[in-house]
Simulated scan of single mutants.
Amino acid sequence: MRTLVKQSLVDQIYIQIRDDIIEQVIPWGKRLNVNELQDKFGISSTPIREALNRLQKEGLIEYKNNIGANVISIEEKDIIEIQEVALTLDCAAIRYSMEKGKINEMAEELLYNIKCFQESDDEIKRAESIEQFSRVFYRYAENSRLIDMSKLIKGQQSMLRSAYRKEKEGSTSIENHIKIYNSVLKKDVDSAIAFMEQEYKEATGILLNYLK
C-alpha cells in the first residue's frame, strides 16, 4: 500500500482505489464497502467518501439505492459506447491540432512516445506511452472544452485499456500509431484520422472478445 501523506490524504486514497479499479484488483461491478476501506487504510470515513465521490464524477463508480457504491459494470454495449465517444474526441483533437499548424513540434512529441513504447518491456508503461501519444493531439488542439470532455471518458477508457493489455498478453502493437505519426508528418489529416479509426476498430474487437 502507498504511504499516505496527511496533507493529500484524499488524493492518496483516490489514486490507490482508482489504480485498483483500473487494474481490476477491484473487479468490475464489485461493491465498495466504506467500512472495509476504512479498515484497509486505517482512517476515518470522510476522506474515503470524498475519494469515492471523485471516482463517481469520473464515471468509475456509481451509487445504487439500498446498495451503496459499486464499481461500474462494463458490458458489450458499454464497450461500444465508450469506444465511439473516445474515438470521436480523438479524431476531433487530431483535426484541430493539425489545423493549428505546429506540425514539427507535435511530431517530435509523438515520436518520443513511440520510442518510449518501443524501448519498454513493461506493459503498463507501454500503455501509458500510447495514452500520452493521444494526449499530444489534445494539447496542440488548444481547446479547453475538448480536453474537459475527454477527461469525462478517460477513466472508463483506462479500464478498457487494462482489459486490452490482459487480452493481448504482452503482444500490444503500436503499428497504427506509427502510421498516424507518418500522416502527421505529411500533414494528411484525413489519413491520420483513418488510422486512428482503424486502431479503435481493432481494439474494440479485442475488447469484445475479452468480455466473452
Rank of each mutant, 00 (worst) to 15 (best):
Met1Val: 08
Leu4Arg: 00
Val5Met: 07
Lys6Gly: 07
Leu9Gly: 00
Gln12Met: 11
Ile17Asp: 00
Ile17Met: 04
Arg18Cys: 06
Arg18Val: 01
Asp20Phe: 07
Ile22Gln: 02
Pro27Ala: 07
Asn35Phe: 07
Glu36Gly: 15
Asp39Thr: 06
Lys40Val: 03
Ser45Glu: 10
Ile48Gln: 03
Ile48Asp: 08
Arg49Pro: 01
Arg49Gln: 03
Glu50Val: 06
Ala51Pro: 02
Asn53Val: 08
Leu55Ile: 04
Gln56Gly: 06
Glu58Gln: 14
Glu58Met: 07
Gly59Pro: 03
Ile61Asn: 02
Glu62Ser: 10
Asn66Ile: 03
Ile67Thr: 12
Gly68Leu: 04
Ala69Lys: 01
Asn70Asp: 02
Glu76Ser: 15
Ile80Thr: 04
Ile80Lys: 08
Ala86Phe: 11
Thr88Tyr: 05
Leu89Gln: 08
Ala92Glu: 12
Ala93Asp: 03
Tyr96Cys: 06
Tyr96Ile: 12
Lys100Cys: 09
Lys102Tyr: 13
Asn104Met: 04
Glu105Asp: 10
Tyr112Asn: 14
Asn113Thr: 00
Cys116Gln: 12
Phe117Gln: 01
Glu119Lys: 07
Asp121Arg: 05
Lys125Leu: 15
Lys125Phe: 10
Ala127Trp: 00
Ala127Pro: 09
Glu128Met: 04
Ile130Gln: 12
Tyr138Phe: 15
Arg139Leu: 13
Arg139Asn: 11
Ala141Lys: 04
Leu146Gln: 05
Ile147Gln: 14
Ile147Pro: 07
Ile147Gly: 13
Asp148Ile: 02
Asp148Cys: 07
Asp148Ser: 13
Met149Phe: 09
Leu152Gln: 12
Leu152Val: 10
Ile153Thr: 11
Lys154Leu: 10
Gly155Gln: 03
Leu160Asn: 04
Leu160Phe: 02
Arg161Tyr: 04
Arg161Trp: 00
Tyr164Glu: 05
Arg165Asp: 04
Arg165Asn: 09
Lys168Asn: 04
Gly170Leu: 14
Ser171Gly: 09
Thr172Asp: 14
Glu175Ser: 15
Glu175Met: 09
His177Trp: 11
His177Met: 13
Lys179Thr: 05
Asn182Leu: 15
Leu185Ile: 06
Lys186Ser: 12
Lys186Arg: 15
Lys187Tyr: 01
Asp188Met: 03
Val189Tyr: 10
Ser191Asp: 15
Ala192Trp: 02
Ile193Ala: 00
Ala194Gln: 13
Ala194Leu: 08
Met196Glu: 14
Met196Tyr: 03
Gln198Cys: 08
Glu199His: 10
Lys201Met: 13
Asn209Leu: 10
Asn209Gly: 06
Leu211Tyr: 09
